[in-house]
């Protein structure tokens, strides 16, 4: 008996460091956030008071929350497919034998290596009215100056462009790795069988890339709700909340308005949303994925 207890003790001692870190920085904050969302925000002399789901009810009436949710939905629905398709196309391009292939691969991957803050500052310049890159390009076609980030109609698309540019190169690396792992004789066998390149791509390459696609999609969904650095640098959610994404709204509510209870409520909503999406992805897509 004593031996067993001793072993158990050792086992606990071994997992203790990991457990402490996980609890302190992941599980405890998550639970605390959930609890906080059920109380009012403590202020000076007023301690927090239990209010049940009142914060959630208030959130339903918050137009900025709905705006942020809508923005984020549009942002995700556009940037995820765009960056994944672009990543696949780039991977296919650099997987073929072309001159200067290593340079091209590096060029595609560069955005991933740059910090988002730096990227945002570069793009801030691209979007500058009059002498920015985009105004110069449209100027060639005779169109006048445009305040890309100052106009509510173009501000969110501008954010999406930055995100796609940043993400596609990262996802390309995964697709490229998967393509390189595909045995070349499959393609040769298909070419002997009279399969066109498109038929081979549709019937062989795409299905064999499905595990990669699932992985990339999960990451893309998380990033669509997680990456807001460029919003902070470029627009601060403006103009008129046109570029406010959920996470940026949480940051504003929590650390600029100091309404911590509402920020906790928003966080729980965001977590629930991401959890649902992940379950959907693994449950529905995962079943159709063929793993070797």
């Amino acid at each position: 008996m004593a031996g067993v207890r001793r072993e158990t003790l050792q086992a606990w001692a071994l997992i203790l460091p990991a457990l402490v870190l996980l609890v302190a920085f992941t599980h405890w904050p998550a639970v605390a956030t959930l609890v906080d969302s059920l109380y009012t925000t403590p202020k000076g002399s007023r301690p927090p008071r239990f209010v049940g789901v009142e914060n959630y009810v208030a959130l339903m009436d918050d137009p900025v929350f709905w705006r942020a949710l809508h923005n984020n939905a549009v942002y995700a629905l556009v940037t995820i497919p765009a960056s994944v398709v672009l990543a696949l196309l780039m991977a296919l391009a650099v997987n073929t034998a072309l001159p200067g292939r290593p340079l091209l691969r590096m060029a595609y991957f560069t955005p991933t290596m740059l910090p988002m803050i730096a990227v945002a500052n570069i793009w801030l310049f691209f979007f500058t009215p009059d002498y920015g890159l985009f105004d110069r390009i449209v100027g060639v076609f005779g169109m006048g100056r445009h305040n890309w980030l100052g106009d509510a109609a173009t501000a969110l698309p501008a954010m999406m462009a930055v995100a796609v540019w940043k993400e596609a190169g990262f996802f390309m690396i995964f697709y490229l790795a998967a393509l390189q792992a595909m045995p070349p004789d499959l393609k040769e066998a298909a070419s002997l069988e009279g399969s066109s390149r498109w038929n081979f791509f549709r019937r062989v390459t795409l299905p064999l890339l499905m595990p990669t696609t699932l992985f990339v999609l999960v990451n893309a969904v998380i990033n669509a709700f997680r990456l807001v650095d460029h919003v902070v640098v470029m627009t601060r959610g403006g103009p008129d909340n046109a570029t406010t994404l959920l996470l940026y709204y949480i940051y504003e509510t929590g650390f600029r308005f100091w309404d911590t209870a509402m920020a906790a409520t928003l966080t729980v909503v965001l977590l629930a949303l991401l959890g649902t999406l992940a379950i959907f992805q693994f449950g529905v897509l995962g079943r159709r994925v063929h793993y070797r």
């Binding site: 045995p183 004789d185 499959l186 040769e188 066998a189 019937r203 062989v204 299905p207 064999l208 063929h290 070797r292």
Partner: peptide, 8 residues
């Protein structure tokens, strides 16, 4: 030699 069968 590797049979080149489509695994999926």
């Amino acid at each position: 030699q590797s049979y080149a069968l489509f695994p999926h």
